[in-house]
């Protein structure tokens, strides 16, 4: 009974704060509403005996939403939410798409027949997950780690102020690779052929 009430309270909190994300007048507040939604889902996961997943979800999102709030301050055009802020396009299409996806997934959940097999009592799911992470599923775990490393490198490469051949906004065109001829050869060629010598590094 208490478990059910707690579950419904946190479900309502998750959905309500998720909805407030797109109704807040300040982007920083939107970030913290989103954090609240993640925290509520994390607590529901803890109630479902997935303590490890729930707690790392809250920890991860705490860090990520703090970074996001800093980003919001950097990019937002409405500091402190003093003015009403709506920046939407194709609002009605988006509402229809959201409602349709909600109804489709909810119908799947309500009408599909899923097997019923609860986790047996007396077994520690966190311990089992730890053995799985460093046992049978170690390849998955390692692949996730390497993917995160690749994402870090890619994030630095994309957001760096300098590209490989100069400033980032100059694109990735290589400079000319023309070999500079020795001075004597250039003079001889100019005497033989009066066409202008193209100096290296000058784009046509």
């Amino acid at each position: 009974m208490i478990l059910n009430v707690t579950f419904w309270a946190f479900s309502a909190l998750a959905v309500f704060s998720g909805w407030r994300v797109f109704r807040a007048d300040s982007m920083v507040r939107a970030a913290y509403w989103l954090l609240l939604s993640f925290a509520a889902v994390g607590i529901i996961l803890v109630l479902l005996k997935a303590e490890f997943l729930g707690l790392i979800l809250i920890l991860m999102m705490g860090g990520e939403m703090t970074i996001m709030a800093v980003f919001m301050v950097a990019f937002m055009m409405n500091p402190a939410g003093l003015n009403p802020m709506t920046m939407v396009h194709r609002n009605s299409v988006a509402i229809v798409a959201g409602v349709v996806s909600f109804l489709a997934i909810a119908a799947l959940g309500l009408f599909a027949r899923f097997p019923v097999a609860r986790a047996p009592a007396g077994v520690d799911p966190t311990r089992k997950l730890g053995v799985e992470l460093l046992g049978n599923s170690m390849l998955v775990f390692q692949t996730a780690g390497v993917t995160l490393l690749a994402a870090m490198i890619a994030a630095i490469a994309i957001s760096s102020a300098r590209g490989r051949y100069g400033d980032a906004d100059q694109g990735s065109v290589e400079p000319d690779q023309m070999v500079t001829a020795p001075a004597g050869d250039v003079a001889a060629a100019a005497a033989h052929d009066p066409a202008p010598v193209i100096s290296p590094g000058v784009h046509q």
Binding site: G18, F22, S37, V41, I95, A97, G98, S101, L103, I105
Partner: peptide
């Protein structure tokens, strides 16, 4: 599904 739908919106 509700969270997903709000996200889609």
């Amino acid at each position: 599904a509700a969270l997903f739908g709000i996200g889609v919106y």
